[in-house]
């Protein structure tokens, strides 16, 4: 159980760190697909099957395609030019900030009395229960998310559309 968690964690962290350090944008996007698949595996490990499949469909399927399209549409030239790090100062400052945040969170996690609870057997929540929850107490939130997605996607189309002059009636 714990061994599986550690293996999943190594896959997620290795793939995401390699993606963030890679000098090739295509490699970054493909490594992030691996990291997102690892996160879906974590959801399966934790017993949240529906969320795992949603993660696989949305991130591994859709968001990765959007990112790959963006990488291809914003190519500078015909060759795969390496993406340089901007400066050592920025990189060192970013690492320092992230290290500080990690230290604070590590201290908080280790200092919290979290291990008093005995881990129950894996809880399961069926798709029927989830559907009843979504249609019952969380129905207003579902409607708001629908409106948000519609507005965001329309806005994305408007932002990314080409401005044409009015020669066509």
């Amino acid at each position: 159980m714990i061994l599986a968690l550690i293996i999943i964690a190594l896959v997620i962290l290795g793939a995401s760190a390699a993606a963030m350090l890679s000098r090739n944008l295509i490699h970054s996007a493909l490594l992030l697909v691996v990291a997102w698949a690892g996160i879906a595996a974590f959801y399966l490990w934790a017993g949240a099957e529906f969320v795992a499949f949603a993660q696989a469909l949305i991130y591994v399927g859709a968001v990765s395609m959007i990112v790959l399209f963006a990488v291809l549409l914003t190519r500078q030239g015909a060759t795969a030019a390496p993406v340089e790090f901007d400066s050592w100062r920025r990189a060192v400052l970013g690492l320092m900030v992230a290290g500080g945040v990690m230290g604070v969170m590590f201290g908080a996690i280790m200092g919290s009395p979290l291990d008093g609870r005995i881990a129950s057997p894996t809880p399961t929540i069926t798709v029927k229960q989830l559907g009843l929850l979504l249609m019952g107490p969380y129905a207003p939130a579902l409607l708001i998310v629908g409106v948000l997605l519609t507005v965001a996607l329309l806005g994305a189309i408007v932002i990314a559309a080409v401005d044409k002059s009015e020669e066509t009636p």
Binding site: L13, M20, A98, G99, I109, R117
Partner: peptide, 28 residues
């Protein structure tokens, strides 16, 4: 405990993302 392991995994992932957002200059 396993909960602490999960929390440490998620905070490490958060910090990896933070490094990417702060140290890289490519918008994507």
């Amino acid at each position: 405990s396993p909960l602490q392991l999960c929390l440490i995994l998620s905070s490490l992932l958060f910090c990896v993302g933070l490094v990417g957002a702060l140290a890289r200059s490519n918008t994507i």
